[in-house]
Write a protein that binds this DNA or RNA. Structure first.
Length: 914
RNA sequence: GGGCGUAUAGCUCAGUGGUAGAGCACUACGUUGACAUCGUAGGGGUCGCAAGUUCGAACCUUGCUACGCCCA
């Protein structure tokens, strides 16, 4: 879509009108992945969003940062590949479809597994594209032609191979142990999916009668145990005391007759019992508590022998010894939906039996009262998806030996082979990796990668890449049944950096070229879930790091600093912000606020400010267009003689260097601010103002031709440098300004290749200082800003002599000084303005308030004197001169000289006023 | 209990040894053409507190306070 006859730009900038058009253009022309076989590869894989998802503000941040990097590297000529796709998200997706069924009074279990999975696929085909459409609205330049899904056939092959390989290497195994069980979703989940929250609860104390006439040292015929979960006493298998606890030496090895069940259980000695806590006696329920599980194993109870009292929904079931009274069977573990459960009934029965030790406290009037239990804050595990209390439950599950797989990644980070940015996350990473627990990867779901393991009727396991292969292992005629469970979603997404590139085909060209990836950008919240596991799998399969660098960003918070959540109702919809301010403004906000990992507080005013910035650029382009400034044909800076033109060329080079330095260390904020300040404060505020007089004269003069050429080039450089942050407006202007051989998205990064003239820089800096100081003096003295004033300069400095002649028009227009006469001013009241070493005398007889001018000069004098005194003090200190860095001393001397000069000029100026 | 982080202008944030900045907000002035989604000028900070190191500390060290996050 090259525009050969540029149409005048509309007077107002309307983001919505251009965004969809340009995105579609880029995508259909394949510009997100230009063919660059010779170029250096640069690779990012996106954190695949849940296929059920829609774009939230965190995605907006994450993907903006990735797009800034990928567009930047593409402009720098790299073979930039941004892999995109979505995650099948086992639990989340299954929940979405189950909820739909519920809405129709239907449920999953009314269908066969195959039929239900077909429904999920149908849902995915119909509604799964929401988030990918939304990523397009944000302007993300991913390679959609290779869009991936974690349940694509090739991806499934990779997952199955991974499972089989790990199993054969002994790194995946089946084990019976306690897992975190979600009774709502009826599946096991991993440690990471459990969130501990402290909630109000109770602490009950029970008497457990000793059997066979045993007594404690103090003579009691019972032990007192305390618990926050009384219902679990139905599956108690022991009471533990500390081996050194003198109070209980006589009962170790004796027995308890448990109330309610009548179960006879031993009193055991175990260091887990803390003598300092409560009575020092602890009830032990190995089948329903992680600590007790370990105590039970130490006491010689095999996991298979541990009593289980819950069904998958955490309703009470009969224990293996048949001792749970009938009235408990089927009750929920605790009060639910207003109905009392096993917990409440246990307390009631214990109280009736006189075995509840009341909690004595005082009411608000100071009267002593007895409560059933002590109110306490209880740290409680919740499932991050289902939101209900997690039940430790004894089951057979598949585990990954994470500790073994963690070794190479940990070394790699320690060696600096993988760079984590910001570095402060390294410690957290090491701490987790070095204390890592076995990773439970089986999930009792239907939607996901089914575990490639088969059992024969004796429970013997055959792990294979296909049913045929498993049958081969088992032998003909042996009846096999495939494991019903699926794999943790993170097990598959851990393969993302290479399975998306063609692995396990070893000679996959993309894999050869783009693995290891260059960079991964993710929120720190998935460092363990995903990033660490990609490292494990990358090293396991390919013996190489998945990426050179890992950049971790923070959370986007609400304006008040609170975490955004649907329940709080404080979520900000990025699409709403795009509608209101444009995608470019939202992107720029995200980049400008991103300073290495700290959280970003939402500030809509700031988004608005960046929309204003886009408008500013739009209007600057309109000005250029109106003055015949258009597309530049050269990458290198055009030849320039005029000071302003030389100056802006130097400023372009400085800006490009600043962005490059910032991007090299992933300082998105510094990069964004560099182009912002250059565009607004240098190009618009000064350069365009400086060149306006050139266009007032002969439009074909050499000066006008040169200026049009340089201005067009400089504006082009702005568009290129700003493009990674604001792709839409820059692409639009790129084409509006003239016919182009290629789109901006595949343009060339600035390479000015120009010497910056020191004289030109000095001259423009001098004009700027003169202008600013003159404006300031006028404002303070109440002189009309627009009034043209004659000025006299008696002894011009070299820079003044050169510049007054060459830039008279600019001085007249900006400082509103004309004519400027070299020579003594006529006597009389005058305003005096200083620029560098030069003093301008501006006669204002009859207009000027002498007292005000005096006050103004005295104020400036006082400021200079204060600075000078401070510098003198420092330089008078021998310790400073001897010990400080020589550059620091030189700078102090130069600063002092400057202030002394300033003092002399101001003193003289005051003297002239009389 | 362990670890990490934060505290700088009214607000949101930059600033890793040389005497403090940006955007927004605020005040005053300004619309005979790039832009009022703007321009010009200006006010505003004992850099959380205390001690130490140093010629010199927002920055380094230690302690304290407050807030946040992660792990147990």
């Amino acid at each position: 879509m090259t525009v050969s006859n540029p149409q005048p730009l509309p007077t107002t900038f309307d983001p919505a009108a251009i965004e969809a058009r340009w995105y579609q253009h880029w995508e259909t022309k394949g510009l997100f992945r230009p063919h660059r076989p010779e170029a250096e590869p640069f690779t990012i894989v996106n954190p695949p969003p849940n296929v059920t998802g829609s774009l939230h503000i965190g995605h907006a941040l994450d993907n903006t940062l990735q797009d800034v990097v990928i567009r930047y590297e593409r402009l720098r000529g790299k073979d930039a590949l941004w892999v995109v796709g979505t995650d099948h998200a086992g639990i989340a997706t299954q929940m979405v479809v189950e909820r739909q069924l519920e809405a129709q009074q239907d449920k999953r279990t009314n269908y066969t597994r195959e039929d239900f999975i077909a429904k999920v696929w149908a849902w995915k085909e119909e509604s799964g594209g929401t988030i990918t459409r939304q990523l397009r609205r944000l302007g993300c330049s991913m390679d959609w032609s290779r869009e991936q899904f974690t349940m694509d056939p090739h991806f499934t092959r990779a997952v199955i191979k991974t499972f089989v390989d790990l199993y054969r290497d002994g790194l995946i195994y089946r084990d019976k142990r306690l897992v975190n069980w979600d009774p709502k979703l009826k599946t096991a989940i991993s440690d990471l999916e459990v969130e501990t929250q402290t909630i109000p609860g109770h602490f009950w104390r029970f008497k457990y009668p000793l059997a066979d006439g045993a007594r404690t040292e103090a003579g009691a015929d019972h032990l007192i145990v305390a618990t926050t979960r009384p219902e679990t006493m139905l599956a108690d298998m022991a009471v533990a005391v500390h081996p050194a606890d003198e109070r209980y030496q006589s009962v170790i090895g004796k027995h308890i007759i448990l109330p309610i069940t009548g179960r006879r259980v031993p009193v055991i000695a175990d260091e887990h019992a803390d003598p300092e806590l409560g009575s020092g006696c602890v009830k032990i329920t190995p089948g329903h508590d992680f600590n007790d599980f370990e105590v039970g194993k130490r006491a010689g109870i095999a996991p298979a022998a541990m009593l289980n009292m819950f069904d998958p929904q955490a309703n009470v079931c009969q224990t293996a010894d048949g001792l749970v009274p009938q009235e408990f069977i089927g009750l929920h573990r605790f009060r639910k939906d207003g109905v009392d459960g096993a917990r409440e009934l246990v307390v009631k029965r214990m109280k009736e039996l006189g075995l509840l030790v009341p909690f004595i406290t005082k009411d608000k009037d100071g009267n002593e009262i007895a409560l059933d239990a002590e109110p306490r804050q209880i740290p409680t595990p919740f499932g991050d998806r289902g939101g209900v209390v997690i039940e430790p439950w004894l089951t057979d599950q598949w585990y990954v030996n994470a500790a073994e797989l963690a070794k190479k990644p940990t070394e790699a980070v320690r060696r600096g082979d993988i760079e984590i940015v910001p570095r402060s996350w390294e410690k957290t990473f090491f701490n987790w990796m070095e204390n890592i627990q076995p990773w439970c990867i089986s999930r009792q779901l239907w939607w996901g990668h089914r575990i490639p393991a088969w059992f024969d009727k004796d429970g013997k396991i055959y792990v294979a890449e296909s049913a045929e292969e498993a049958q081969q292992q088992a032998g003909e005629g042996v009846a096999l049944r495939q494991d019903e469970d699926v794999l943790d979603t993170w097990f598959s997404s851990a393969l993302w950096p290479f399975a998306t590139l063609g692995w396990p085909e070893a000679d996959a060209p993309l894999l050869q070229r783009h693995y290891p990836n260059s960079l991964l950008i993710s929120g720190f919240d998935i460092l363990f879930f995903w990033d660490a596991r990609m490292m494990m799998m990358g090293f396991y399969h390919l013996d190489k790091r998945p990426w050179d660098r890992l950049y971790l960003h923070g959370l986007v918070r609400a304006a008040d600093g609170a975490k955004m959540s649907k329940s709080k109702g404080n979520v900000v919809d990025p699409l709403g912000l795009i509608d209101k301010y444009g995608a470019d403004a939202l992107r720029f906000f995200m980049a400008a606020m991103e300073s290495q990992g700290r959280d970003i507080k939402m500030d809509e005013k700031r988004v608005e400010g960046y929309r204003n910035f886009a408008t500013k650029l739009w209007n600057a382009a309109r000005f250029c267009q109106a003055n015949g400034i258009g597309a530049s044909a050269s990458i290198a800076a055009p030849p320039a003689r005029l000071a302003a033109n030389q100056w802006i060329i130097g400023e372009v080079a400085a800006c490009a260097a600043a962005i490059e330095a910032a991007m090299a260390e992933l300082r998105f904020d510094n990069a964004a601010n560099a182009i912002y300040q250059f565009t607004w404060s240098k190009f618009c505020d000064w350069y365009l103002e400086l060149i306006k007089p050139v266009f007032a004269g002969d439009p074909d003069s050499p000066a006008a031709l040169e200026t049009r050429s340089v201005a067009g080039w400089a504006l082009d450089q702005i568009l290129v440098m700003l493009h990674p942050f604001m792709p839409f407006i820059t692409e639009e202007l790129w084409h509006r300004l003239g016919a182009r051989e290629y789109e901006l998205i595949v343009a060339k990064w600035p390479a000015p290749q120009a010497e910056v003239s020191r004289e030109a820089t000095e001259a423009i800096d001098w004009v700027i200082e003169l202008t600013t100081n003159t404006r300031s003096a006028r404002a303070e003295l109440g002189i009309a800003p627009g009034a043209k004033l004659a000025a006299y300069i008696a002894e011009p400095s070299p820079v003044a002599s050169r510049t007054i002649a060459r830039s008279a028009a600019a001085i007249e227009r900006l400082a509103r000084l004309a004519p400027v006469t070299i020579g003594a001013a006529p006597p009389g009241a005058a305003m005096q303005v200083i620029a560098g070493e030069d003093v301008f005398i501006i006669p204002l007889e009859g207009v000027i308030d002498i007292a005000a001018e005096k006050a103004r000069l005295e104020k400036a004098l006082a400021a200079s004197q204060k600075e000078a005194r401070s510098l003198e003090g420092r330089l008078a200190n021998p310790a400073f001169v001897e010990r400080a860095a020589p550059q620091a001393v030189d700078k102090a001397r130069a600063d002092l000289a400057h202030h002394q000069g300033e003092i002399a000029r101001l003193t003289a100026a005051l003297a002239r006023l009389g």
